[in-house]
Structures are given as C-alpha cells and as structure tokens.
Design a protein around this nucleic acid. Structure first.
Lengths: 214, 214
DNA sequence: CCGGATCCCCAGGGATACTG
DNA sequence: CAGTATCCCTGGGGATCCGG
C-alpha cells in the first residue's frame, strides 16, 4: 500500500494493515490458527486468489505472518501469525465490537461461517457468574454449528456439535448473535425465529461487553 | 466501498470505515473537534480534495459525521463527529497503540503535526502518581508545540506553548515520542538529540500503557 | 481564500483461466 | 492443492478550475 506519509502511529498502522482484505486475513489466522492457503481462501469468501497470495507475501514481509512447511506426510505450506501478528488481536477486537451495531440486518448474499459466530462470545461477552458450574451451550445458526463452554470464569468456544449441551440456541444468525451480544432480548430473538431449548437461565450468565468496559 | 459480503462484525465494520483515508479523517475530527473542510485538508497532508469531499459525504450518510452551518458571522460549514462517530475512538486507540512499534524511525518525507504528538500522552500513558501535584510539561518536536498537563490523575494535552512548564522536552519527534511511550529511556532519547530541561523526575509519572492493559 | 467539482491518468483490486 | 498469469475495471492521486 502507498504510505500515508504521516508521522502518526495510526497512519503508520494503516500503512501496514490498512489494505483491503489484510485485516480479514489476520482475522482468519487468528480464528483458525496455522492453516493452508485453501483454508484461508475458504474462510474469506469473495477474495481473489492473487490478492490472497499478494497479501500473504506482504504480511510475511511485515513480519506478521510466518510461512512454514508442514511436517510430513502433509507436505504443504502452513500460514500462521507471528508473535507480532498476534498483537493485532486488540485491533480486531475493537473493530469487531464497533461493527456489532451493523449486524442487526441480514443481507441475502452475505456469507456466514461458524467461526465468525464462535468468536462473538469470547470477544463480546463475559461470564456474569464466574464461580458458577460449568455449562455448555450449543449454537445453531443457518446450519453453522458452534459450542460455548462456560467454566472457571472463562468463555471458550469451538466449532461443531456438543455431546450434551445444557442449552441449545437455534435460529437465524442475527437472532443468535443479537441474543449473545445483548442487542436483543430473548422475546425479540424468538420473534425472529430463535428457539431456546434447555436451561434458559444460562443466558443470564452471558454478560455483553460494552465499549466502555473494553 | 464495496462490501465484503460477510456476516461478521469485523467485516461489516470495515465495510463502513475500511476505505482509504476514512479512519484518518475520523482521527482529525476526534483531535480537532468541529472544523472546516480546509482544516481537515491541512490535517491530512496528501489527501486529494475530491477524496476528502467524497469521504465526508460517505461518513455523513453512515451517520458518523454531521455537517452543520457555522453560526454567523462565520458563514461556513463545520464537520464534526456524531455520537456514533465518537464511538470509533477505541478503534483508533487500538490501532494507534499497535502502530507505535512503527514509529521508531523517521522517514524524511513524512509530515508531522503537533496534534499527532499531543494525542500520544492521553492515549498511551497514564499518571503513575495520580495523587501527585499538578505539573506541566512542554513538548517541542520539529518545531511543533504541545503541552501535557498532569493533575487529578488525568493527563490532558493541548497544542501550543505553556507559560511556566515544569519540564521542557525538546528534540526530534521519535525521541520525544519514544520517551513518552516508554519505547526508549532518557539516555537513549538524549543520544538522539533530546534535551530535557527542568524537573526530570516528572518523567517517572508517565507510565506507558501496554497492549495488555488497554 | 474557502469549499468543493471536474478531468485525466495510473495503481490496485476483482474475476477467471491456467499451471506445476 | 497452491498458487501464478491475465484481463478488465474501479477507485484513488494529482492538478486544475469554478462559484461564493
């Protein structure tokens, strides 16, 4: 990217990660961990392969991404964030929190992936009852599956199906997400088609993070 | 900007503020407060006037910027951040903190303004002795003047010259900034040409904010 | 002088085809 | 699977011009 030519830390940050797609590539590496070119491509619907290739090279030059040969017998290349690349997490976090206000509508053509659903609880909610018993919530949105695990005051999420969830939330993405992030209450989410099966009391433990607290 | 077409809050945030120059315009409005087209242009060296015009329109459409007629007799237009626009501050903050690591070198052609120096202390340092006496530090870097005021546990900064500063820091931007943000100690800053005149003990009150604490 | 609008040109991005 | 090559087109940079 062309430099802004300003001795200002915001401008210099944007010199490095201000290019189109760059921060989304970092998002994918943050969510997926070390992964292949194709995994990134799949996690970034709409990106052109030449652009992905170019950006990865730029990120590597900037010292934010490492490109390693996977151990045999895989024999492929794995991309991952370097230590410095990982320090972008607060930036993505702030940006994601700010962007929540634009998640209230679904746009027909938009892509949607379980990973993008999964990061929401870990970034945008805290456990209101950190000493409470462990609990598992299954999320289902537009066919994408994610699992929230509460315990030890932590919120962890994984992709996929839980064996014995205490609560199952199933509905359109904006209802599931809106409920998790506090943008809407259960009644409103259910009016949008959400079903909540199991211990609904668990929802009170998900305390939305506000901008002020972050 | 063309939408990324992803139902992800980071992507949607970038749909709104991911365009080139957009976040820097927000930075200027944040630092300057309500100001005129020309003030913005001056605060954004390198921007083309048509782009500034276009971006302001987009930001207005997005509800982030308000365009108001200044009260007579000024008879001009004032741009300012709306309440929603102000909520971008944490994003700029995170980005600026991350970008500090790229401020260690000076690039000959780079523009530099007092405002960009002034925001550093308020964003990137805290008062290590919040109950200490009020104090005033004059910053001078590349001819740009800013003032840090410590008191009541707050750090306030203004542009310009202080009447009776307790400490004067004068030197190249990277030395002044490096000292303030903890990137270098006084000895190293002085080797880069910084002079510190007055109560140097005051420097111990400036505690750099780390990414973890932010 | 302020607040843009207009024009031209080029770099960067998007879509797709193709190759080791 | 992991990119590279190509073509096309949009968006940004730079300068100039114009109305108030």
């Amino acid at each position: 990217m062309r430099s802004y030519g300003q001795y200002c830390s915001v401008a210099r940050a944007l010199d490095v990660v201000g290019d189109r797609w760059t921060l989304l590539i970092v998002r994918e590496l943050l969510l997926q961990g070390p992964c292949r070119f194709t995994d990134l491509k799949n996690g970034l619907p709409g990106i052109a392969t030449n652009l992905l290739s170019t950006r990865l090279k730029e990120l590597e030059d900037a010292g934010l991404v490492a490109r390693d040969d996977a151990p045999p017998p895989v024999a492929t290349v794995l991309y991952s964030l370097t230590e410095r690349g990982l320090t972008l997490e607060p930036v993505l976090h702030a940006l994601g929190l700010w962007g929540l206000q634009y998640m209230t509508d679904e746009r027909p053509g938009d892509a949607f992936q379980a990973r993008w659903l999964a990061y929401a609880p870990t970034w945008f909610t805290t456990d209101a009852d950190p000493d409470g018993p462990p609990a598992v919530i299954q999320l289902v949105a537009a066919g994408e599956l994610a699992v929230i695990e509460l315990g030890d005051g932590q919120i962890r999420t994984t992709i996929g199906r839980a064996a014995e969830p205490d609560l199952v939330l199933d509905g359109p993405p904006r209802a599931v997400l809106g409920l998790l992030t506090g943008a809407m209450d259960l009644k409103r989410a259910m009016r949008l088609g959400l079903s909540a099966t199991g211990h609904r009391q668990l929802l009170t433990r998900l305390r939305p993070v506000t901008a002020a607290a972050a």
